[in-house]
Amino acid sequence: MSDMKAGSNLEKVLKAGHFAFTGECGPPKGANVEHLKEKVAHLKGMVDSVNVTDNQTAVVRMSSWAASAIMVQEGVEPNFQMVCRDRNRLAMMSDILGVYAMGIRNMLCLSGDHQRFGNHPQAKNVYDIDSIQLIAMVKMMRDEGQFMNGEEIDESPRLFIGAASNPFADPFEYRVHRLAKKIAAGADFIQTQCIYNMDKFRDFMKMAVDMGLHEKCYILAGVTPMKSVGMARYMAKSVPGMDVPESLIKRLKDAGKGKVAEEGIKFALEQIEEFKEMEGVAGVHLMAIEWEHRVPEIAERAGVLPRPEV
């Protein structure tokens, strides 16, 4: 175990060479702990760790660290997300120490959606540091035992460091370099943006594999099952950096009334099957948005159960 960076379940699963399967859970828009516990219960035993989003889409919710700590109490391993939009480096470092103290062992470093999208567009946007600098900062705290200013930390936070990659944002040719930069900064694992354009993702992974990035870092492919044609259209049109091919929208539409969600799940399952075989892909990150109760079924049908005990 001495070669473990943080010793989280996710790290152990990946290090043991298993195909990882992670989930996601948004904290409540309020202090409704029971609702959070209920959502988390659906994911227990179904995934290796659960991403806890940090004011996603710039909408205020229960803090990701508090929701992560509740998850630890519930016996589900969280992957604590932190965005650069809301905190300066002081707040970030203190929260990093705080989450570690609360038993959290995974952390995902993100830029964050601009507050203009959210429910407080009047807010000041912080961006003291960017996501890549955040990765480097967490690594420095963990491996050098130092704060950003070089001062010594009294007991460093041992966190398994994650980062995001969006192969579908522009400029496409640069995306693999940005991934490489995140890995060089200290990312131990990557979770990609939701994938719908499989051709483009294959190209992206080929570039990543050619650069040997999959040997330096675990890459988890992002999957979000489409629940409806409306959701597919919304994602295609209104979510920046999201690539939803027209063929998928047509496939969902053709499924007919009452059968769209099942078709969405079928597409996700086909994707997961392909990812299991795809060179350089170490697992799947399933973002079943407000669909936590469907995760057991999806995991079962994807053949990823039972999750490995490591």
């Binding site: 830029s111 961006y127 996501s131 890549i132 944002a169 640069y174 940005r178 920046p240 950096g241």
Partner: peptide, 29 residues
């Protein structure tokens, strides 16, 4: 850059535009 990023375009850069507005060029692009 809407986020003053120093290490490249964020995941919201699409078709040369910033995620916050289609009227705004993504400087990182």
């Amino acid at each position: 850059c809407s986020k003053s990023l120093l290490n490249g375009p964020c995941g919201g850069s699409a078709d040369g535009k910033c995620e916050i507005s289609k009227d705004l060029e993504c400087i990182w692009d």
